[in-house]
């Protein structure tokens, strides 16, 4: 299989899942944080759909990665930008793809350095399985198992689309 997946129904599913979860938990003003790069595009899209007035945060997890001692520092690191204090906030952490769970571990550590959040919800567009850490998304657009020669890539920001590539 090669080509594009239809992203709209996946975004609809994320939006609906997020609305329901926020309602169940009684969260009226969540603080959205996207993980660079794809997660930031999705945070923008979800903030628009949920009609949130507050600007969303952007997280670059380069300083928190656990492979620094193997590969060194990512030379293309950009500043994280959180336009709010995370202390006592209900945070929605957003990423495009979850696999090992290591990115989310790093992102949560970074979020805590901005203050102790009341709660964190994890929303990802695609769940590829293959977890190495006990981290699961609360909301996901799609669960997918890739063949070893397949790659998935979110492209954007405008229009947002997912491409499945055969290596």
């Amino acid at each position: 299989m090669n080509g594009q997946l239809d992203i709209e129904p996946l975004l609809d599913k994320m939006e609906a899942g997020l609305r329901q979860l926020l309602q169940e938990r009684g969260v009226s003003s969540p603080a959205l944080i996207g993980i660079r790069t794809g997660g930031v595009w999705l945070a923008a899209e979800l903030a628009r759909r949920l009609q949130l007035q507050e600007p969303f945060g952007e997280l670059d997890i380069s300083f928190y990665r656990d492979d620094f001692s193997r590969i060194g520092l990512n030379p293309k690191v950009k500043p994280s930008s959180l336009p709010f204090d995370t202390a006592d906030r209900d945070v929605v952490l957003i990423d495009d793809v979850i696999m090992s769970g290591r990115t989310i571990r790093a992102a949560m550590n970074e979020v805590f350095d901005y203050g102790r959040p009341a709660s964190i919800i994890l929303a990802t567009l695609v769940d590829l399985g293959a977890r190495e850490l006990p981290v699961q998304p609360d909301v996901r657009g799609l669960a997918l198992t890739l063949e070893t020669n397949q790659r998935i890539k979110l492209r954007g920001p405008d229009p947002l689309r997912i491409e499945l590539e055969q290596a």
Binding site: D60, S62, F63, L73, P75, K76, V77, K78, P79, S80, S81
Partner: peptide, 10 residues
Amino acid sequence: LDTADSFIEV
């Protein structure tokens, strides 16, 4: 310089 910019934010 770019990396330092990120550390300014820290």
